[in-house]
């Protein structure tokens, strides 16, 4: 043990170890503080009562009211439309935003890129339901508010994955197209677009699947789709109908997930 490097290395390791334990301790402390803050106004009687409540709720939820299905087909169609049209609208907005945000295609690193990144972050931060809440007060209740809410939420998701895909392209292919004397639009068309097309299709299908899920609940705030029926049923405590709606939503979500997984497998 004569090397001067070894004790130095040990000391750093011990400090790192200490820091790590301190980090975990801090996390535990933070958890305790948060828990007390969160539950200080909690009425615990409700919580102890929860199992009975749950059992009661369950007994009222079964059996589902199957005959209600007749009035669910149209809302289901609306839900599908909200998700699909919302995804299409989002793609229209997200593609240019992604090209403006990607380091290698943005026209200006200092001016345009931060704006595009902010659009992406802002869109990702705000849930579709909140966008829907806002849009319903602006546009009135209906499918249009739902479509736009889904689109606004999806722009960030699609934009983020797409701009990362653009930044990961093989630059030599782009260079080769540039070397032929192609103009900027042609470089985009021949050098960049073919490389990101599979990623683009995969992202679009994946987001469509998520959007089916999200659009099932948009009706809670009046933005159309099967959520409208859910809200109406919950409001009048028609639990057997609620159960049926849950089953329909579950089936839709599973079907769309299966479909999107199949399409994505076909793309690869």
């Amino acid at each position: 043990m004569s090397g001067a490097g070894q004790p130095l290395w040990r000391r750093r390791s011990r400090a790192a170890e200490l820091l790590r334990w301190l980090g975990w301790l801090l996390l535990v402390l933070l958890f305790v503080v948060c828990w007390t803050l969160m539950t200080q106004e909690q009425i615990w009687e409700f919580v102890w009562d929860a199992p009975t409540q749950a059992a009661d709720l369950f007994s009222r939820m079964v059996p589902p009211r199957w005959s209600y299905m007749d009035s669910l087909w149209l809302p289901l169609w609306d839900t599908l439309n909200i998700a699909t049209l919302g995804t299409l609208l989002a793609l229209l907005i997200a593609v240019p935003v992604a090209f403006l945000a990607a380091r290698n295609t943005t026209p200006s690193l200092l001016l345009v890129r931060p704006v595009a990144l902010f659009i992406i972050v802002a869109s990702r931060s705000v849930n579709a339901l909140i966008w829907a809440l806002l849009l319903v007060t602006i546009l009135g209740p209906g499918l249009l508010a739902g479509v736009i809410a889904i689109a606004l939420r999806s722009v960030g998701f699609i934009g983020k994955l797409l701009y990362e895909a653009i930044e990961e392209i093989d630059t030599r292919q782009v260079e080769a197209v540039r070397a032929t004397g192609a103009g900027p639009a042609q470089v985009l068309d021949y050098g960049i677009v073919p490389q990101i097309l599979p990623a683009f299709a995969g992202i679009a299908v994946f987001r469509w699947d998520i959007n089916i899920r999200e659009s099932t609940v948009l009706g809670l705030v009046g933005a159309g789709g099967i959520g409208l029926q859910l809200k109406a049923s919950v409001d009048v405590l028609a639990w057997p109908q609620v159960t049926l709606i849950f089953i329909v939503i579950l089936a839709t979500v599973i079907a769309s997930e299966w479909l999107s997984a199949r399409v994505r497998r076909a793309l690869i």
């Binding site: 030599r172 080769a176 032929t180 021949y190 073919p194």
Partner: peptide, 25 residues
């Protein structure tokens, strides 16, 4: 440095990009 996902023909034709308009290409 071929554009991997384009056909061989498109790759060869991309040598003409400097001569044709954007819309044609």
């Amino acid at each position: 440095a071929l554009v991997e996902r384009l056909t061989v023909m498109e790759n060869v034709l991309s040598g003409r990009l400097g001569y044709v308009s954007f819309w044609r290409s």
